[in-house]
């Protein structure tokens, strides 16, 4: 049986842990709100770029199209861009993203493809342990407090340069899609070549009512459609990366809030259990003392 003093020390240590996890939970909740707002604010741009790319790609596609749209004609080297966070203590957030990437890598390797990794954020570097030679680049996010477009653009430019140099044929983006504070879905998305959403006419109608209503001939292009598309495709890659950063930021905070909430509750349970044990031990000590006094008095 632990001594009274040891128990007291234990209780106090759990209490201070609880204070920390509680504070972290509250900080995460505050940051989550901001990250969610940022994700919402980024949506109009991403949606519009996407709809323009989709409508242009459907027409300007075909032969002679940009390699960003048509691909390199090969399917050998796959680049997996794994976007993780800089900090841990966010539950299974980073683990889930890395696991999704590893699963994809194993799948591709089983099919005889070459796999390369491009890690973004400190927590993705664990991939080095499994694929010591596969990680070609690592983008540091430690200076980034909030997701900025410049950051996404830097990543996208680097990727595009590597693509142009023929380092890989297909690029996939891994991040956690934010659904709610409780649910974050590890997501895989092909960013190079651009996967044009299938032209479901009904869907296109709701997404881009004006684009489809204006008809094909009515819209004037300045410069030509092909040039606009060539200008737009690299930008689209940056937008997709930026969206991943935004979604990830919100997911990270949601996941952390959840993990810290659990930790706080666990600490509470532990404190209750230890307190009961402490009180019992104390009572036992008092009883023993009383028995000693009474028996001593009787002996007189």
């Amino acid at each position: 049986m632990a001594s009274l003093k040891a128990l007291k020390i234990r209780i106090n240590s759990v209490k201070s842990t609880q204070k920390i996890t509680k504070a972290m939970k509250m900080v995460a909740a505050a940051k989550l709100r901001r990250a969610q707002e940022a994700a919402m604010a980024g949506r109009p741009y991403a949606e519009r770029i996407e709809s323009v790319v989709a409508s242009l790609a459907a027409r300007a596609g075909g032969e002679g199209a940009s390699p960003l749209l048509a691909g390199t004609g090969k399917d050998q080297v796959h680049m997996l861009v794994v976007v993780t966070s800089e900090r841990g203590l966010a539950g299974a957030f980073n683990t889930n993203i890395v696991r999704a990437a590893r699963r994809k890598a194993e799948e591709l390797e089983a099919a005889g493809k070459t796999v390369r990794f491009y890690t973004v954020g400190r927590k993705g570097r664990v991939i080095k342990r499994f694929y010591p030679t596969g990680v070609v680049a690592d983008h540091d996010l430690s200076t980034m407090k909030v997701a900025r477009f410049d950051e996404a653009k830097a990543i996208a430019d680097d990727l595009l340069a590597r693509y142009a140099a023929g380092e890989f044929d297909v690029a996939h983006l891994f991040y956690a899609k934010f659904q709610s504070a409780l649910v974050q879905i590890p997501t895989t998305q092909q960013i190079i070549p651009v996967s044009v959403p299938t032209r479901d006419p009904k869907l296109a109608q709701t997404l881009t009512p004006a684009l489809s209503n204006d008809g094909d001939a009515a819209v004037e292009y300045e410069p030509s459609e092909e040039q606009i598309l060539a200008d737009l495709l690299p930008r689209n890659v940056a937008v997709q990366v930026f969206r991943a950063l935004l979604e990830n930021a919100a997911s990270e905070q949601g996941s952390r809030m959840n993990a810290m909430d659990n930790a706080t509750r666990n600490a509470g349970d532990m404190i209750n259990r230890l307190s009961i044990q402490y009180n019992r031990t104390r009572q036992a000590a008092i009883t023993t003392e009383l028995v000693e006094i009474i028996s001593g008095a009787e002996a007189l």
Binding site: V52, A210, D214, A218, V219, E220, Y221, E222, P223, Q227, I228, D231, L232
Partner: peptide, 19 residues
Amino acid sequence: PGTEGDFAVLEGHAPLMAT
């Protein structure tokens, strides 16, 4: 400021897409 020159848009402008 379009790539091929500035242009002004008023209400009822013809559909246009420009970098």
